[in-house]
Design a protein around this nucleic acid. Structure first.
Length: 107
DNA sequence: GGTCTGACTAAAT
DNA sequence: GATTTAGCCAGAC
């Protein structure tokens, strides 16, 4: 993938996340060599306005830390559950099992 | 143009 | 082992 502005990069990577899978800010930051996971979340916040499945990105604990930024606080969880991910109390159940790393898709 | 602020994370306490 | 601290870097003011 080409290095663009980090916004576009975050968008692209996020769009690559398969349905029913999730990844972390850190994984994306690592993949993009940002060195600043916070920016990923920040970019994702802007990504909500675009056609980006930002709900598939959670913090390293598998917690839906960004749910409050969605239209409704429960929206993120609903989207994940629609994709077959079990979410309990804003935390993904068996997070490790659903975890997806960008490099995994790259090959 | 310096300062503040994040949907975070790892290390230190 | 839970809480706190520092580092991360791009935008907004």
């Amino acid at each position: 993938m080409k290095k663009q502005s980090f916004w576009a990069d975050v968008y692209d990577v996020t769009k690559l996340i398969p349905a029913g899978r999730v990844t972390t800010y850190g994984a994306i930051a690592e993949f993009l060599q940002l060195g600043a996971p916070r920016m990923v979340g920040w970019a994702l916040n802007a990504a909500l306005k675009a056609d980006i499945p930002a709900h598939r990105v959670v913090n390293r604990k598998g917690e839906l830390s960004g749910r409050l930024h969605f239209a409704t606080p429960t929206r993120m969880q609903e989207l994940l559950e629609m994709e077959g991910i079990v979410v309990k109390d804003a935390v993904i159940v068996d997070f490790k099992r659903h975890f997806w790393h960008p490099l995994q898709e790259m090959g």
